[in-house]
Amino acid sequence: MSDTAATLTQDRQKLEMAALSAPAVIFTVAMIAFPVIYTVWLGFQTFSSTGKQSFAGLANYSKLISDYEFWHGLWITIALFVLSLVLQLVFGVWLALVLFHAKRLPGIVRSLFISPFMMPPVVAGMMWLVILDPSLGAANYILQLFGLPPSDWLASPIWVIPTVALIDSWQWTPYVALIVLGGLQSLPPSVYEAAQIDGASPFKTFQRITLPLLLPTIVTAAILRSVDLLRFFDIIYITTQGGPGNASNTLNIYGFRVGFEFFNIGYASALMLTLTAIVFGAVLAFNRLRGAVAW
């Protein structure tokens, strides 16, 4: 084959490759890239009650700084994020260790373990709404059996965030566990054998050897969960819509309500762009952490 013919086929190949990714790229630009740019523009607009829009400069952002609901929403978002993440990582690692030592895991058991995070979060919300009902729910009955005082759960301004964190952790702890289990299974068995020969206790082995080797996997699980936790929506919207009062009004819920209940699209855009910046910031921070614990 001559040189010109070779470059000709190469050029044709490049063109064909571009044509193959074109539909996905065009779709993503049309449905994501362009709308996000449009949101940036909307963030500089103000919408009157009649739906008329006009340029407002940075008014939405200066409003955000002095908006009590924004800071409250940020606090709720971070509280829910930290609480859920800690619960899911701690119990996820525990569950992974239990599953790892069970050796043989039949498919049916695996299916049962994935069932919480494969069901729609909305269904999880409906289900827990009934279980956690303050007067007739099964949860309070079980508390009573153990002589514990009943709780108002989702109806309590103080307990609503821990309760939502508990529901989300019920859903996603098995997911974290299966990721960590994958990490455990890929560790070289030789490190355990060496520790055993040295006479290290199981706890010491875990603390000094297993945990440090698992850290990159755990951080990966943390990244995947953080992205969902910082934009928490479904379970709260189906159970409390941000209530009681504003006790579970996370930034995502607040932004949604500003946009689609009060139709203040401009201010909602400013809120959502801020939340997006927070999510990307958290991912970047975790990525650095993953680099630091890599081995």
Binding site: S21, A24, V25, T28, V29, M31, I32, A33, P35, V36, Y38, T39, L42, V227, L230, R231, F233, N252, G255, F256, G259, F260, I265, A268, S269, M272, L273, L275, T276, V279, F280, V283
Partner: peptide, 23 residues
């Protein structure tokens, strides 16, 4: 192109929903 599509996995859905609603 693959990374571009990941944006949807990370950004809150409301970020897209606001402009989609208007459009």
């Amino acid at each position: 192109p693959a990374i571009l599509t990941l944006a949807a996995r990370m950004a809150p859905g409301t970020l897209f929903l606001l402009p989609w609603y208007v459009m």
